[in-house]
Amino acid sequence: MNAIIRTDRRLSMTVVGPVLGLIALLVAGALLNPNFLGWDNLTNVLARSAFIGIIAVGMTFVITAGGLDLSVGSMAAFIAGLMILMMNKALPGLGVGIPVVLLGMATALIAGLGAGLLNGLLITRLGIEPFIVTLGSMGIYRSLVTWLADGGTLSLDFTLRSFYQPVYYGGVFGISWPIIVFALVVIIGEIVMRSTAFGRHCAAIGSNDQVARYSSVRVGHVRLMTYAALGMLVGVATIMYVPRLGSASSATGVLWELEAIAAVIIGGTVLKGGFGRVWGTVIGVLILSLIGNILNLTDFVSPYLNGAIQGAIIVLAVVLQRESKADG
């Protein structure tokens, strides 16, 4: 037959590349600091990866379907602010207890879903470029949280914060809730991406939306759902974030969107859409967190160069995957 170029070798490299990167970082970390592989340090890293990680799982779907969302960082800050205001306001009526925390969580989920749907509707119904829509909403949410906080910081009532804190710091069997929630989101995300019609449709749309349309796929609907799901996951991440420090300000969630996008791409999802994998995104998130962690744990390089190292590793991780594409 005419030129059947087997793709196995390339596929295997895109699979192995990010895993190799992760292993290399783990080895480097263990060699540089004996505490690195300790239980405490590893759970710290996993827990702090959870916010970006949960968001990045949603971002994987958006990017796979050929979209992009720049607003997630600001959205997280806005939802955190809204949640704190809501809980503080309801506190005198409900008192410190589970109802007020549930109210806060519901606020976060509904606000996230609403914000995601708004992005999605503007993109699918009005046909505006995702980059522009979410660049706009990024600015809007960022100023809204600054406005809500009067330029300062919104703080959760101290006693309420103590009550709510176990949601970040507590857990079962020594594994904290953010890690458990992150793991659940990843498992569900992986199943949805790999073995449901929705995941398949996302990949088809990102690959070629005309083909998807001509194949009777509900293109607009699927796209809308990716943004709604991402918004919802931003809400979930915020539910974990607020109890950590109990505050939100205009400095909350800055650059989270780029970290999430970088994690997705490092994990092997194609930026222009058409192919995505959730487990890869998890590896991407871990790679990003571990770089920061290792740099903090060692005095290897000047802290001024942290950004440069992070950037170099991101590029390297992606280059590794492309390496064998040359003769394709």
Binding site: A203, A204, S207, N208, Q210, V211, R213, Y214, G274, F275
Partner: peptide
């Protein structure tokens, strides 16, 4: 090629 099939799948 552009409307019928996903060439990279």
């Amino acid at each position: 090629k552009t409307r019928g099939l996903l060439l990279d799948k």
